[in-house]
Simulated assay, not measured.
Amino acid sequence: MKNMVELEMVNDYCKGLGLSASHPLVTVVDLSKADWKPRKGTRSVRYHFYGIFLKQGQQCIMRYGRQNYDFQDGTLVFVGPGQIVNIEHIETDYQPTGFALLFHPDLLLGTQLGKVIDSHSFFSYELHEALHISERERQIVLDCFSKIEFELQQGMDRHSRKLVTSNIELFLNYCHRFYDRQFFTREHKNQGVVGKFEKLLNGYFNSDKPREIGLPTVAYFAGELHLSPNYFGDLIKKETGKSAKDLIQDKLIETAKARTFDTDKSVSEIAFDLGFKYPQHFSRLFKKNVGYTPNEYRMLN
């Protein structure tokens, strides 16, 4: 891709700011110390490591996916390996402030954090789904960063890797708590998302989309609502207690049960109308959830 900057290691990010990483695989960056040299136009950056940015100021616009995000005081943004961020509208006198925690996947090999890193779904949220934190929460973030930086400055010994990754995991667990608080404080807005999802789900099976597109997915509804699949899934789970995937399947089975009463259509036709490519897959799922095959359920009723 034209103008794509590949950040392979954490020091690649640091060098662009005139800084150096504390360790080849992990570092905490004080962005106020950066020797920033802004470039004209839009720049695309692909990260090959994890990055958490505590950003301040509104002089820089970053775009990931469909929407722009203007950084504000007390905002945490998460970037995972493979994600592309577009940076634009940077003033020539721009001086970044805030902090960044960067760590490479290789740091996590064989560690407890490595086993659970995929559960931290916010690394695949879009930028406009960033975490907005209070002043008290911001101090907790800075304390976590300070502990990680302290370990890196001591010189690596046999305890260092475990202590560093444990402190990163502690910080990420705090982020889960902060996101739960953000979901709660935006409950009214979230309920609007749930309502729209239910309306879209009902409309999907009352249209030709199942035959044209296939079985509905979490990613499809997230896209319709302009949310990342993980953020959408986490929001739905917080608001309803059930996963978006389970709610989709519940609606699918409910619709399938109702359509078995239409004796003018065969089970195969019903399967195709619902988006299944193969009728046997439909029959297997139906029996797993209802306890009877579609034909048996039709006969019972």
Rank of each mutant, 00 (worst) to 15 (best):
S243Q: 04
K245S: 11
G223Q: 03
Y204C: 11
E88D: 11
E88P: 07
F272Q: 05
L107N: 09
K245E: 01
L201G: 05
V267M: 14
K199I: 11
H226V: 12
T217V: 12
K287W: 00
C60L: 15
L113G: 06
E254C: 01
R259A: 10
F261C: 05
T111A: 03
Q154F: 03
L215E: 06
K37W: 08
S283G: 04
P96A: 00
H89P: 01
I253W: 03
I236T: 02
Y220G: 12
R211W: 14
T255Y: 06
H159P: 07
H89M: 09
V194W: 08
S207D: 07
H226W: 08
E151G: 03
G16C: 05
V45K: 04
T42I: 14
G82D: 01
L102S: 07
F150T: 09
E212W: 15
E198M: 04
C175S: 05
S44N: 12
R181D: 14
K115R: 15
L235P: 05
N11V: 06
V5W: 11
T217M: 07
A21I: 08
S124H: 15
N86M: 00
L225K: 10
L163E: 13
P24M: 01
L163T: 14
P38K: 05
G16W: 01
R39V: 14
G275F: 04
I52A: 01
H120F: 13
V79K: 02
F232G: 02
D234G: 02
I140N: 11
R158Y: 14
H120C: 13
L19K: 00
V10G: 03
G195N: 05
K40G: 15
Q182D: 06
P294Y: 10
D273L: 15
F71L: 09
G80V: 02
R138P: 02
T217K: 12
A222R: 00
V194G: 01
Y13T: 10
E149T: 07
G114W: 09
N190E: 00
T240L: 04
T185V: 14
R181E: 11
I61F: 11
E198Q: 07
T42A: 13
P279C: 06
L131I: 03
N173G: 14
M156A: 04
K37R: 10
V5P: 05
P216D: 13
P229C: 03
G51H: 00
D208H: 07
S228P: 08
